[in-house]
Design a protein around this nucleic acid. Structure first.
Lengths: 187, 187
DNA sequence: GGATTCATTTGACATATGTCACAAAATCTA
DNA sequence: TAGATTTTGTGACATATGTCAAATGAATCC
């Protein structure tokens, strides 16, 4: 991906970033293209990156004893990473490509270094964290108050595109139910 | 609460805050003392504050059709507020005193204003948000992977003091189970 | 294009947990 | 301290959903 195209892309992703930080971001980013199933971040390992999705999609999941539970999905024009990675800890989640995808990868440590002296960078990071937090809070709310059928309908209404691009097994785990139950809800 | 005592307190809460911001914080804070049951933040309403707990404790809960589900508890030396309040939206949660408590209250808008120009303030806010986020992520993980009994034991091991200070009804809702089920787990 | 693998559906059954009703214990209050 | 109120515990029962097993359908690959 050439420099000027990258710059336009980053500007549209991060409209509030000042010119100087934008260049620093570019310096610490690289273009990544990879196939379905590739793990951007693996559970238990330390990673130093967060990503922007140019096209394609990813799922994030926790796993325990061969059971996987999806925590979120993300597609074009979304910024992704895990909280634990951001904190410099081994990741609790795995983040994996749902399809062949193109992404921009950023070195977290460099960006965090910038954030120590740049207001526009730390505000950008803060905004990403907050949006993510509001999402999980909503998910937690739905798990506590809505039946599995209501959760499925809510997903169907708010983000129907997910149903087209994610397997029902993954969606079931995301909704907190078994694949068989989801199948029955749909019938 | 006199000014010098407040300053010492704030310094210990926010060791990384520079002197100038510290004074700004003090200017936009006030001392609050209130009794059990008082609502610091009510669901559906806009509020302009976040708090530090000097002593006492609070619970946060979502409610729907007379059912309450606790989302978190906080006690001495914790900073509290709701994500939606921080974002200037009507709160989704209610935050209520579990006991007679003393707190310091901060005007969010003023603090956010400071955060636009002060690195140490925005980093402070970011740290609070991140800690909160890691907590809910852990809660979500437990809800998906652990049985109600395991969740109870985890709570008992990590924060046994909660069991002393919070009613079993509230704990049950926090664990995502009915009060009767919690009673049976304990027996 | 047939075979192999993977994803989804369906059926039968077990079970954890919710719900309702009431009893017991603890706490508050006058 | 007695009575009222709130909190916690027990029993009986219903049910949503998980689990296991097998069948069908869809995608992938030599």
């Amino acid at each position: 991906m050439d420099k000027s195209k990258l710059k336009v892309k980053l500007k549209s992703f991060f409209p509030n970033l000042d010119e100087e930080s934008l260049h620093a971001f570019m310096k610490h980013s690289s273009y990544v293209k990879s196939t379905k199933g590739t793990k951007l971040i693996s559970e238990g390992k330390r990673h130093g990156y967060f990503y922007l999705i140019l096209n394609g999609g990813v799922k994030s999941y926790y796993s325990k004893e061969s059971r996987e539970v999806c925590m979120w999905f993300a597609f074009e024009n979304e910024a992704i990473g895990t909280m634990t990675t951001y904190e410099g800890l081994p990741s609790k989640e795995t983040v994996e490509l749902l399809e062949g995808s193109e992404l921009i990868r950023f070195e977290i440590e460099k960006i965090k270094e910038l954030s120590r002296t740049s207001l526009s960078v730390i505000h950008l990071l803060n905004d990403i964290v907050i949006e993510h937090t509001l999402c999980i809070e909503e998910r937690l709310y739905q798990l506590q108050f809505m039946s599995s059928e209501e959760r499925y309908n809510a997903l169907f209404e708010t983000t129907p595109e997910i149903l087209q691009r994610v397997s029902l097994t993954d969606i079931a785990s995301f909704l907190g139910i078994s694949r068989e139950t989801l199948s029955r809800i749909r019938a």
